[in-house]
Design a protein around this nucleic acid. Structure first.
Length: 283
DNA sequence: CACCAGGTAGGAT
DNA sequence: ATCCTACATGGT
């Protein structure tokens, strides 16, 4: 490995310490818009949830984070979830020729493309259409609290799994205020488990077509599901921000295929940084 | 009271 | 194929 990221990963008394200095930052990930269920605690810590697993993560005393869980769980669940085995520094080096991406790395280089649950991503990004990020987070939260399974309490707060299709099937989803998206979600819940299993096995083009054929999923949501739910790293979702950014920064001319194998990571960096600068200007 | 928010379906051209 | 518009809801 040419770049050789300096990764510290070892057992400590209360869990597992992980430190990847330039390419793993939970605050940046939580603000990156790919994940709506990473919860910030008072002290700079976070709670992460995936499937039926729940973990408390606190800042390490010399940087990095401590995952408060057994080592086996860290290795089998959280390493893959946060994509910690991939060499993001190598990706970053391949972006060095692009000024905007160098700035984006300086601002958000700690972002990683998470491997989230496929079904959860389908529902979450259906909800995301023509919606804003705080409201997406709230709707997902209500779905979990109302229809999910309690997983445990951390710092006095109860956390829940994302509801399975069976848990949503036939339910009145109105507490989540999904608006016109509610019928889309209800229809999604009617597909059986095997449908989603088959989707994971399909190649990129087939999977994208399968997704777009579903009511409520167009090209953009399909690409988000591909990237965040199927970890298809060549997927490059184009939303309003990415389109504005391409117009603004690249004069309407940007080809993600030049970053084959990590175009989705490039998209995340661009999305994060362009939105961040827009927010700062609007203040 | 307008306008906006990680778009999409369904219909018209 | 490509363009047009309605769409639920809650926040400025």
């Amino acid at each position: 490995m040419m770049s050789g990221e300096k990764v510290i990963c070892r057992r400590v008394s209360d869990g597992v310490l992980i430190n990847i200095p330039h390419t793993f930052d939970l605050k940046q990930i939580a603000d990156s818009g790919q994940c709506f269920r990473l919860t910030a605690l008072q002290d700079g810590g976070y709670v992460a949830v995936t499937d039926m697993k729940l973990v408390k993560i606190t800042p390490g005393t010399n940087g990095g984070y401590v995952f408060h869980c057994p080592y086996d769980e860290f290795r089998d669940v959280w390493m893959p979830y946060f994509d910690l085995s991939a060499d993001y520094e190598a990706y970053q080096q391949k972006m060095a020729g692009d000024l905007f991406l160098r700035e984006a790395i300086a601002a958000g280089g700690g972002i990683r493309v998470l491997r989230q649950n496929l079904w959860e991503m389908v529902v979450t990004f259906i909800i995301s259409q023509r919606n804003n990020i705080p409201r997406i987070r709230k709707a997902v939260d209500i779905l979990c609290q109302t229809f999910g399974t309690p997983l445990g309490e951390i710092d006095g707060q109860q956390f829940y799994s994302f509801p399975t299709p069976a848990q949503l099937r036939g339910q009145d989803l109105s507490p989540a205020s999904l608006g016109y998206r509610e019928s889309y979600v209800k229809e999604m819940a009617e597909y059986d488990e095997d449908f989603w299993v088959q989707l994971q096995k399909q190649d990129d083009d087939t999977a994208r077509k399968t997704l777009i054929a579903l009511r409520g999923i167009g090209e953009k949501v399909a690409n988000c599901v591909m990237l965040f739910g199927l970890h298809r790293m060549d997927s490059y979702p184009r939303d309003v921000w990415i389109n504005r950014m391409i117009d603004d920064i690249y004069h309407g001319n940007f080809d993600p295929s030049q970053y084959a194998g990590f175009a989705g990571y490039v998209q995340q960096l661009q999305f994060f940084y362009y939105r961040k600068t827009a927010k700062e200007e609007s203040v």
